[in-house]
Design a protein around this nucleic acid. Structure first.
Lengths: 160, 160
DNA sequence: AATCCAATTGAAAACCGTTTTCATTAGGGA
DNA sequence: TCCCTAATGAAAACGGTTTTCAATTGGATT
């Protein structure tokens, strides 16, 4: 059981939110997930601990976690979203197009580019989105790979 | 009338698609747009030239243009999409969070980062998304700017 | 422990962008 | 001109997310 278990719940409580059973079920799943999941996937898992849980509560809890900066929302092709636990403050993701497994990375050297663009365009740049897509080592091993890229979460296997 | 007018329609025809009035109405709008628009915005404008146009045809035409590489789809917060004419083959966008005006830029120096990440993670990296958000010069002038960021297409003014 | 109120919850409906279905229309080669 | 297929638009379906609302419940106050 990773130490984060305590952290997430604590943080949510300290932020003034009540500690309820449905909420805790969601927090437990989020804390334990090893790769980004969709709201629906989180629901399925959290229902194991609290069967009457509703999808709405999943969304509402994720909203809180997003606001607190504990999770990040990843945008996949097709308008799908996936949620990942944020490890460091400024993070981007390298996402497997086959299974959805993701790696967070934090050294994005974009300051130079951002500064240059701001100068040339006059824009006041406040944020950037950067996501990389590819095939994780496991998926490369499992199939010859002439299939889809950039398709969002496929389910060839459960990401470890 | 920019020279692209001819290009787009021609390219679509040469690709084996019929030249129909609804299609042409959409192409005319896409060719003339000065900043990225949503499918619905394109519909509104194209209806001026072909009133019975349906939203479906807008989507279908955009699909063709995307496949031909003539337009790119931008992803905004909230799952909204916006479509922009692609100027050069590999392009990213700097998007104004207030009015939606966008600047395409093509020098993204990510090869180094991509190569390093691939080595460290074992992923076979095939694509990346990069979008920058900020405030265009015009919006900076028009309002004190303590408002939203990263919100997608707002409509404080019509982008030039 | 009992009370009470605001926060929380889940079901259902609403929403919104996009896609599918399907019967009708029309482009353009024969 | 004929004919076949691509293209079209209306309406319905779809999928993810949000809103609404009445019922429940945590937890501070007695």
């Amino acid at each position: 059981m990773p130490p984060q278990t305590i952290d997430l719940a604590l943080s949510v409580n300290c932020a003034g939110y009540k500690s309820t059973a449905p909420r805790q079920a969601v927090l437990r799943v989020v804390t334990g997930m090893r790769s980004p999941l969709t709201a629906h996937q989180i629901l399925i898992r959290a229902k194991r601990g609290y069967p009457s849980l509703g999808l709405v509560t999943v969304y509402r809890t994720l909203e809180i976690l997003l606001a607190l900066g504990h999770v990040r929302r990843l945008h996949l092709e097709g308008g799908c979203h996936t949620y990942a636990v944020a490890i460091a403050p400024h993070g981007h993701y390298l996402i497997c197009s086959r299974c959805g497994a993701a790696v967070e990375f934090n050294q994005c050297r974009m300051q130079g580019m951002v500064r240059g663009l701001a100068r040339r365009t006059g824009y006041r740049i406040s944020a950037h989105w950067l996501e990389l897509f590819g095939e994780c080592p496991r998926c490369q091993r499992s199939t010859p790979s002439h299939t889809s890229r950039h398709l969002g979460v496929a389910h060839a296997h459960t990401p470890r």
